[in-house]
Design a protein around this nucleic acid. Structure first.
Lengths: 260, 260
DNA sequence: AATCATGTATCATTATTTGAACCGCTATAT
DNA sequence: ATATAGCGGTTCAAATAATGATACATGATT
């Protein structure tokens, strides 16, 4: 493991619930030597990737991300192409619609919108990572994404979030194969009690899934009919998005989607 | 120079005008060994900080920035606090208003909006870096920011963009001292012919400038009266923003601003 | 066929990373 | 007021990982 990898790994510890991390705290979290962590942190800070709370001296994500995210979006304008599609879906379905991309440790938000007006809603943290094994987005991504992604993820450990969460590699592999043959992933309270979701992938120019769009609802609203209807809506959206992005839905997927 | 710093430095080569960079190209740009660059690039790619164009194999900024920028904004919600103020200024002044933060090599955009309706406008690339020495934002930042920033910047080299650009450390230092005493920075075609601007800082809890707000206009519209009026507007905006951010305008600046 | 690009592999040299001990500061407890 | 514990930060010799030169496979372009 290169020093660069280890240093960059520090950035992954930040989240909504852990926005600032001090030196000692970091050494515990990482089990690296304190001097080592300190050198990593100062290198990251000097480049603007971290920033220090002047009062507590604790580190937090730095201003470099503002600019680099802007350059990234100009280079690959994913968010600006995906957002209108998600917004339209949310408006049409009145549910929580979420577009996501894979990262190492889970699916990360591209854009989301809750189209629900009143009543029961699904809570959601747009800056978090959704686990691959316990969400419809994650399973859809593993089913239709790059084989290396599947290999990496399946060899890891899996947390049990609810009674319904599968944590055995065998079960997950089987589930993923089923998803591949059915053309979409449907989750029934795998991650959170009372939340169901469906997810479909969108593809790059080589027919490899780039990311997913999913719709989450309270379990009470996810009847078979409702699910079927959402899947049909998502087929249209993902087909359109794939084409907008200059991608290609693989022939076998295209055929499954046409006969749903 | 640590390996981490060198590897992170690669990310700074990306910009709107250079969105993708291949391996050979990178080795030329950096003067590092090809093997070394390759190792850096794969480390960055594996962590999601880079991403490869599947066709050309060239590298571009990766999806990690989308998520980390979101976490950063939750941690330190600068953009969401600054944006409404900038938008309001743009609407009121009908000019290009820009909020910026310092990075190593220049001022980077927090948010901007061109409030002009028709007529001559100032062009602007929101994902770029504005040089410290040739913009009102940069000079204002150096005048009111952390002394270390000034030291680092002043010891570097300066590009001459127009006839009006000062490139001597002495001249710049003098100019910065003048700005410190007058409470604002005014640029007259330092960076681009025909573009004038004024900039004022906003401050953190210790009275160190965090960033700047500037307004740019065509030279033809920047009369002394117009400039005075814009400065007054910016005094209000920066005072308000500083307070919104929980910061403190230093007493000496506060007094200058009150007597403009 | 020749050129240029990415990526892979090896390996002695060298420079960087490492980790334990140490320092100075602050807050809390005795 | 005096110890103590926890924090961020520093130092330096020893261990290790990064480096860069060389060489080669491969595919795209000319």
């Amino acid at each position: 493991m290169s020093t660069v990898t280890k240093a960059l790994g520090l950035l992954e510890y930040f989240s909504k619930s852990r926005p600032e991390i001090g030196l000692s705290n970091f050494t515990q979290l990482t089990n690296f030597d304190k001097g080592t962590v300190f050198r990593y942190l100062t290198a990251l800070r000097d480049q603007g990737f971290l920033d220090q709370n002047p009062l507590t001296k604790a580190y937090r994500l730095g201003p470099a991300f503002i600019r680099l995210a802007a350059v990234r979006e100009i280079t690959v304008p994913l968010v600006s192409l995906v957002a209108p599609i998600v917004d339209r879906l949310a408006e049409d379905t009145h549910e929580l619609v979420h577009a996501a991309l894979p990262q190492m440790k889970g699916m990360s938000t591209l854009h989301y919108l809750d189209g629900g007006h009143g009543g029961i809603r699904v809570g959601f943290n747009g800056a978090g990572l959704l686990p691959f094994h316990a969400t419809s987005s994650g399973i859809a991504m593993l089913a239709f994404g790059h084989p290396d992604l599947f290999k990496n993820v399946i060899s890891g450990e899996f947390e049990k979030f609810t009674d319904q969460t599968s944590v055995q590699a065998n079960d997950l592999t089987q589930r993923i194969e089923y998803v591949r043959s059915s053309g979409f992933a449907a989750a029934n309270q795998w991650f959170e009690a009372d939340v169901c979701s469906v997810a479909l992938p969108f593809f790059d120019g080589k027919g490899i899934a780039l990311g997913t769009i999913s719709i989450a609802t309270p379990a009470s609203r996810m009847s078979d009919d409702a699910r079927t209807s959402l899947v049909h809506t998502l087929v249209h959206a993902c087909t359109a998005l794939t084409s907008t992005l200059g991608g290609q839905v693989p022939a076998y997927v295209s055929s499954i989607w046409a006969h749903l």
